[in-house]
C-alpha cells in the first residue's frame, strides 16, 4: 500500500517539466535535472574554445562555464535573444545554459510524450526523450544533463 503511494508521488515529481523557448522551438526538461534558473549574468569570453561555449560567469562565487543552446540546438545565432540561464549539474560540476525565454513549469504525463521517430533536431536527437503535444505547440523533451555533458566533452576534441 505505502509502496504504491511512494511510487505515485515520485512519478508526479518526474512528470514536472520546465518549458522554455530557444529560437523558434519549445523544449521541456525535467525539474529534477535543474539546479536553478536565473536571468542572464555578465559573461567573460573564454579563449580558444569552440563556438558553443560562450564563456564563464560568476554564480555566487563559483566560476562556471556558459554554453549557447541556440548553437547546440542548431538555431540561428543571436546573443541578444538569450536572456535566461538554466544551471544544471554535470559530472564536471555546474554548467550554465543560455536560453531565450522561460515559458512555465507544467505537468506532462508520460503517456502523452511520444517517442520521436524522425531525424529532426539532429544535434540533440540522441538526447531527445520524446515530443509532447501541448495546446498549440510541440514541446521537445530533452535529457538536458546528458545533452549538455556531451556538448562539453566535445569541447576538448574540437580545439
Amino acid at each position: 500500500m505505502s509502496e504504491a503511494i511512494l511510487q505515485t508521488s515520485e512519478q508526479l515529481e518526474n512528470d514536472k517539466y520546465l518549458v522554455f523557448r530557444v529560437g523558434t522551438s519549445y523544449y521541456g526538461i525535467s525539474l529534477s535535472e535543474i539546479v536553478e534558473v536565473t536571468e542572464k549574468l555578465d559573461t567573460v569570453p573564454t579563449p580558444n574554445t569552440p563556438d558553443h561555449v560562450i564563456g564563464v560567469v560568476n554564480l555566487r562565487g563559483e566560476v562556471i562555464t556558459v554554453v549557447d543552446t541556440r548553437h547546440l540546438l542548431g538555431q540561428e545565432k543571436s546573443e541578444s535573444h538569450l536572456n535566461f540561464v538554466i544551471v544544471v549539474n554535470t559530472d564536471k560540476g555546474k554548467v550554465a545554459a543560455l536560453v531565450d525565454q522561460m515559458i512555465d513549469v507544467r505537468q506532462i504525463n508520460k503517456e502523452i510524450i511520444e517517442e520521436s521517430t524522425s531525424s529532426i533536431q539532429s544535434e540533440a536527437n540522441s538526447h531527445l526523450l520524446g515530443i509532447a503535444k501541448a495546446e498549440d505547440r510541440l514541446i521537445y523533451i530533452l535529457r538536458f544533463k546528458d545533452f549538455i555533458q556531451e556538448a562539453l566533452s566535445r569541447l576538448n576534441g574540437e580545439r
Binding site: 560540476g93 562539453l152 576538448n156
Partner: peptide, 16 residues
C-alpha cells in the same frame, strides 16, 4: 578558482 566544465585540456586557462 577552478572553472566548472571541461576546460582541463585548455592549458592557456589556468583558472579564474
Amino acid at each position: 578558482k577552478s572553472i566548472n566544465g571541461e576546460h582541463e585540456n585548455n592549458d592557456t586557462l589556468k583558472g579564474a
